[in-house]
């Protein structure tokens, strides 16, 4: 059999596999590691550890963010540790730099996280600029990203929805760029889909919406735009039933992704009958 024929057979097989389940073949790849879930979740604002665990489980997320904070000296020494509930063996942990307002603080936090997690180098960089909006300080973010990348970190970076800044962060070597869709914790949804589209247009690293999603349809909208994934926390934790919302978000993200891959129909102003207009008998 010629090589060409063999290759054709292989391609056909790949297509058949693809028809069997397009979503199954569709992996999110971040820093060389592949993930089935395109939903990344935070662990903040839950009622207790049990609810955190159940919601994370229901979300199907494989990448889970954590914050790094001082221990409470002498308080509740028997309190369950988050890492006992969200085990680093099962999940890819994504320590964040939430609460940092300078590049120096963010770098310091990432280094502590790496020590805490035995050399784990995937981090979520966020350097905030304003307490009221929690908008990123882009200048400090760029400075921190440069230091962290030089220091061997794999940086997933929270930024605003400025396409030029997103490009710059990609060029610097960030492994994922994560523009906000609305302020952190606001649940306002995808406020500027046009900018997200610009960012997506020639991106060479995964683009994830980080912040702003309020409900499952927002997640679907972001994914239909072509985002590679979504990172959320409050939309799940602040729902009346966080565990059920986690499941809804899982489906919203998956539905939006499949719709993006499927390619939506062209919208039109007037009706187009779905049933044949010929051979009617009335």
């Amino acid at each position: 059999m010629s090589t060409v024929a063999a290759e054709t057979k292989k391609t056909k097989q790949a297509k058949q596999d693809n028809q069997a389940g397009p979503a199954i073949q569709d992996k999110l790849i971040i820093a060389g590691k592949s993930y089935d879930s395109r939903l990344l979740v935070g662990t903040g604002k839950y009622k207790d550890m049990a609810q955190t665990q159940k919601a994370i489980e229901a979300s199907g997320a494989e990448i889970v963010t954590v914050a790094i904070r001082r221990t409470n000296i002498g308080q509740n020494p028997d309190e369950p540790n988050l890492l006992d509930v969200i085990s680093p063996e099962r999940y890819t942990l994504l320590p964040n730099t939430a609460g940092c307002y300078t590049a120096d603080d963010a770098v310091r936090t990432c280094r502590l996280a790496r020590e805490l997690l035995d050399g784990h180098d995937l981090v979520k960089l966020e350097v905030l600029g304003d307490e009221k909006t929690l908008f990123p300080d882009v200048i400090q973010t760029l400075q921190a990203a440069e230091i962290l990348i030089k220091d061997g970190f794999k940086v997933m970076v929270y930024t605003n929805d400025d396409p030029l800044v997103a490009k710059r962060l990609e060029e610097m070597g960030c492994v994922a760029v994560m523009p906000l869709a609305a302020p952190i914790g606001s649940g306002l949804g995808i406020r500027n889909p046009h900018n997200i589209r610009f960012i997506l247009e020639d991106a060479k690293v995964p683009i994830l919406v980080d912040a702003g999603v309020g409900t499952a349809s927002d997640a679907a909208i972001a994914m239909e735009l072509g985002c590679d994934g979504i990172l959320m926390n409050t939309a799940i934790a602040a729902a009346r039933d966080p565990v059920l919302m986690a499941s809804a978000m899982k489906k919203g993200v998956a539905a939006g992704r499949e719709a993006f891959l499927a390619g939506r129909m062209q919208a039109r102003r007037y009706a187009s009958a779905s049933s044949p207009i010929e051979d009617t008998f009335t």
Binding site: V41, G42, T43, G44, K45, Y46, T52, T65, V66, A67, I68, R69, R70, T71, I73, N81, L82, L83, L93, P95, N96, A98, R108, R111, L112, A113, E115, L116, L117, I184, G185, L231, M232, N233, T234
Partner: peptide, 29 residues
Amino acid sequence: QEIIPRSEHNTHRLKSDDRVEVVHAIGGG
């Protein structure tokens, strides 16, 4: 402001006025 790796905890001696920070992972987004 300097990380003391776990492997050095046993040998690292504290000095007067040292500023020691002990951190852990907690819930966050």
